[in-house]
């Protein structure tokens, strides 16, 4: 069939990232610094009497990470340290903010990390999602499986997608709110149950360790709250698998990490542009968009069409059969543009 250069490149990058993020800790054995020393990116630690992930044992559902990370940093994609030797990065941005809301870390220690996060998002927008996020890669594998089995994908209406986005805001808001709440010294005794509430149900926590060949904390029925989290985690995992199997990237409308990246999508360095006069309204771009977006089809004027739901997979640019109609630009410089496939 037609050559898909961008898809090929993207798959390669995705697999590289998956390998890197899962096994990176084996490859780069860097000595980890543990103090809040005068470093560009200070390692943040729980204050005295506060809980942190290392206080949980490996079987626990609250042990989302391996040992020490190679980089004490938080990339804008869904990852955490999930192999016993420590991952490349420490955790994802939701983990980072939740944890530090609980620890009530001073803002000046957070600033470097947040700046890096925002810089990365500002440069690439949500590109991380489709090119780097390891569980997205795992999900894409499920999509591939579906295609092999000749099962058509489900298409979802815009209302449903917006609903998921609202749901994502709810999840993000709730988990930050809970994290902040248990940071209040009077409520510190709840920390052992409610610490990092989103991590406890995050599908990455369950999926990624499997690749690192360790057992994730599958279940914990000791108390009512841990039982609830266990069941919720399974439920979310079920939704995740079903969403990726039938709905391509519909899950990514619900993912709170993706949501945080999406705030930077409009105005990101990576810009998707359309020259509308060249468009023949074939609708292939919408058909191929894994997020089910329609802006690039509907847009009737020239210019940038970055949408907050867009994960910058560039599939629309790749599939568009009109020469030069859609293009991907990096700070105004054209990287690829659509053309008839050879």
């Amino acid at each position: 069939m037609n050559k898909r250069r961008i898809t090929f490149l993207r798959r390669t990058v995705q697999i590289l990232c998956l390998v890197m993020l899962v096994y990176g800790g084996y490859i780069f054995k860097v000595k980890h610094h543990t103090t809040q020393q005068a470093n560009l990116f200070p390692a943040l630690k729980a204050p005295e009497g506060y809980i942190s992930t290392t206080k949980f044992d490996r079987g626990s559902i609250l042990w989302p990470s391996g040992d020490n990370p190679v980089l004490e940093n938080y990339p804008p994609g869904l990852v955490c340290r999930f192999n016993p030797r420590g991952g490349l990065f420490k955790a994802c941005i939701v983990h980072f903010i939740s944890e530090n809301l609980t620890w009530r870390t001073s803002f000046k220690y957070l600033l470097p990390h947040l700046t890096l996060f925002m810089l990365l998002c500002f440069l690439f927008g949500r590109l991380w999602c489709r090119w780097a996020c390891p569980i997205g890669t795992v999900g894409d594998f499920l999509t591939m499986l579906r295609k092999k089995m000749n099962i058509p994908s489900r298409k979802f209406p815009a209302g449903f997608r917006n609903g998921l986005r609202s749901g994502s805001y709810c999840i993000l808001g709730t988990s930050f709110f809970i994290s902040a709440l248990i940071g209040v010294p009077h409520l510190a005794r709840f920390q052992c149950y409610w610490f990092l509430p989103y991590c406890q149900i995050c599908p990455a926590r369950l999926i990624c360790p499997i690749f690192g060949l360790i057992k994730p904390g599958w279940k914990d029925f000791e108390t009512a709250i841990t039982t609830m989290f266990t069941i919720l985690a399974w439920l979310v995992l079920g939704i995740f698998v079903a969403a990726f199997y039938w709905g391509r990237r519909i899950w990514c409308h619900l993912c709170p990490v993706g949501l945080m990246n999406s705030w930077f999508n409009r105005g990101a360095g990576v810009e998707l542009k359309k020259i509308s006069v060249k468009c023949n309204k074939c609708g292939l771009c919408t058909e191929a968009c894994p997020m089910g977006l329609t802006e690039m089809f509907e847009k009737k004027t020239d210019g940038v069409f970055n949408q907050s739901g867009c994960i910058m997979c560039l599939r629309c640019v790749e599939i568009c059969p009109r020469d030069g109609c859609l293009s991907a630009n990096f700070f105004g410089r054209k990287i690829v543009e659509s053309r008839l496939k050879k």
């Binding site: 295609k147 000749n150 994908s153 023949n280 292939l284 058909e287 599939r315």
Partner: peptide, 25 residues
């Protein structure tokens, strides 16, 4: 002038791609 561009090579995907070649443009 316009090609069939198949996004998903399932039967449904191919037929949709055909309609996007013949009817939509």
């Amino acid at each position: 002038y316009d090609p069939v561009e198949i996004d998903e090579e399932t039967e449904s995907g191919i037929i949709r791609a055909l309609s996007l070649k013949y009817v939509a443009p």
